[in-house]
Design a protein around this nucleic acid. Structure first.
Lengths: 338, 338
DNA sequence: TTGAAAGCGCTAACAC
DNA sequence: GTGTTAGCGCTTTCAA
């Protein structure tokens, strides 16, 4: 068993040059004559040599790998962003390590780990709430998408605008009793996110709607969250005729709740979702669509450019949501409910 | 700026021992006296020392990282498996690198890359068809789930049984014109997978159903695939009254198609999905449920155990699908359609 | 049980 | 341009 791996040394000996030269050729350094370069490459090919990645990473102190921190792998919206991240990573010949922060405290654990080790060259953070106090002076470049964390570049979403669009859409359709369901600011607290609430309030105010306190709710991102809160809302003495949700899954759960109460979505109760994930389209769900994939892609492009030394063109990029009206808010539309 | 990183050397000097000893303590080697161990650990804590991961990986030739190859990040079923993989990885203090094979030829590229580099210690392969010819003698341990590839351990799914269950369920409900939609064996070819077809045929045969050729179809895994094929099936002269699909997304697309044709799901046309993803539950979709999460988790547990030297208990684990009947096949059931 | 020293395979600074 | 050499920080013999 001649299992000895061939190294840069073998190549050097083969060609009759120093290992420095081989290294230069392999890393694309300019200071190598055309002739030597060719001879080296020929030998590399002949010996079927591949540089040892671990050794290179170690010597360089870089890994050609980025990390992505995601709050959950069960929420389609995040996965959509993740797809964008992966696309960029793959185009740029980087590797991608996933850090799942779906359990409380996990985010901070990951951050501490990353601060100590050199496992990744940079980090993309997805929709991470302020929950985790960051290690002071985090040593890696980070780009955040839809997250309020200290980062070199931040891609954020105008949630005020998003919820404003949804609410106004429902009001324009003639609804006067419009409820609003937010996500919890932070899984552990029950607080609302400020921005969506502002958008909702603004739309109501502009149309002189007086909203009872009971109409503004907080529910889990999941379909169960939407299901439950909808049952509550629809059994209120003065039940709303429209509900704007903060996730598509909430809205799907709501559709189910409406049915279970023998009411009809799009007629008795209008519903809007949020994020515009794939299933919203199938279900004929009106939604506030955000360019999740694009945000992930862009964030990662920016991070990788950062890693190669380019300064970012901007340190804050704002994405605007867009309203997509379908059957759940407007029964006249032809798109059928699933 | 005293930015010099502290190393194992500093710890050694601090305690007054050799670096070998520190290394032994850090790697939990047995041959260290209780006293020295304590003194070393104390110094490590005091200096806030963390071993350089890159150096360690390099010296050991291992990375404490596994890879997962997934055919797509857009198909919920795969993501469900991925969640299981991530869970195991996280429990075992490994890192996870994602290899997305959603473009043709990408799988083989990844494999070649992995064969050359030591980026990961082992590989989990998800639902990868035979499309990619593997490098002969792949140098890493691999465990496959729902995939027919050369692997140390294979977790497979009894798809024949799965489709048999779905078909028989529909027949038991009184349907005589039952259609079947498979996924393509391989994205590039239009061939059917053998096993599901066998299950379908068996159920039909047992009940003396004579099935026209036009009833067995192949369609893309996506909802668009199901949507399209359903329109075709339902405009056949002798249209089926029930359709068994190979993915839940296909089935959701079918539900939409049925509506668009002004028919009613669960009454005019019964539908079953496959995989049992989350949205199937919300939609009241009857489905053949498979333990995707468990498979991912188990596969990874096995792989990691393999990496630490334990021989696998079995080299082939078979999972059995299970039928979940809901409204789309049986209108009597209370679970409402979304 | 422990210290010393020889790698691991590559990069990069430094001479020539 | 190119060869030489000193690291990178850890693991792992090998003696003692």
């Amino acid at each position: 068993m001649r299992e000895r791996k061939i190294t840069i040394k073998d190549v050097a000996r083969e060609v009759g040059v120093g290992i420095g030269t081989v290294s230069r050729v392999l890393s694309g350094h300019p200071n190598v004559s055309q002739r030597t370069r060719e001879r080296v490459l020929e030998a590399v090919a002949r010996l079927d040599f591949t540089p040892n990645r671990l050794a290179r990473d170690f010597a360089r102190g870089r890994t050609q790998t980025i990390g992505v921190m995601v709050p959950s792998l069960s929420i389609y919206y995040f996965l959509e962003i993740l797809r964008g991240v992966e696309q960029s990573v793959s185009e740029n010949d980087y590797s991608l390590i996933i850090y799942n922060a779906d359990r409380p405290g996990r985010a901070l654990e990951h951050l501490n780990f990353l601060a100590k080790n050199r496992r990744v060259d940079g980090l993309v953070v997805i929709a991470l709430a302020g929950e985790s106090e960051w290690p002071q002076q985090f040593p890696l470049p980070v780009v955040s998408v839809d997250a309020e964390v200290p980062a070199v570049v931040t891609l954020s979403l105008d949630h005020e605008e998003g919820m404003y669009l949804a609410t106004r859409h429902l009001i324009d359709l003639g609804h006067r009793r419009v409820a609003f369901v937010d996500r919890p600011q932070d899984p552990s607290s029950g607080a609302m996110t400020e921005s969506r609430r502002r958008g909702y309030d603004r739309a109501c105010a502009e149309n002189s709607l007086i909203i009872p306190d009971t109409y503004a709710r907080v529910a889990d991102f999941s379909w169960q969250g939407g299901h439950e809160v909808t049952k509550e809302l629809l059994t209120l003495p003065d039940r709303p005729t429209a509900i704007a949700f903060s996730s598509d899954m909430q809205a799907l759960g709501a559709m189910r709740a409406v049915r279970e109460l023998d009411l009809t979505v799009g007629e008795d109760v209008a519903i809007t979702g949020y994020h515009g994930v794939e299933v919203a389209e199938i279900a004929g769900l009106s939604t506030v669509s955000v360019s999740a994939y694009d945000m992930g892609k862009t964030a990662t492009d920016v991070l990788i450019r950062l890693l190669s030394g380019e300064p970012p063109a901007a340190d804050h990029i704002l994405f605007r949501p867009q309203l997509i009206a379908r059957r759940t808010s407007d029964a006249e539309r032809k798109t059928p409910l699933v």
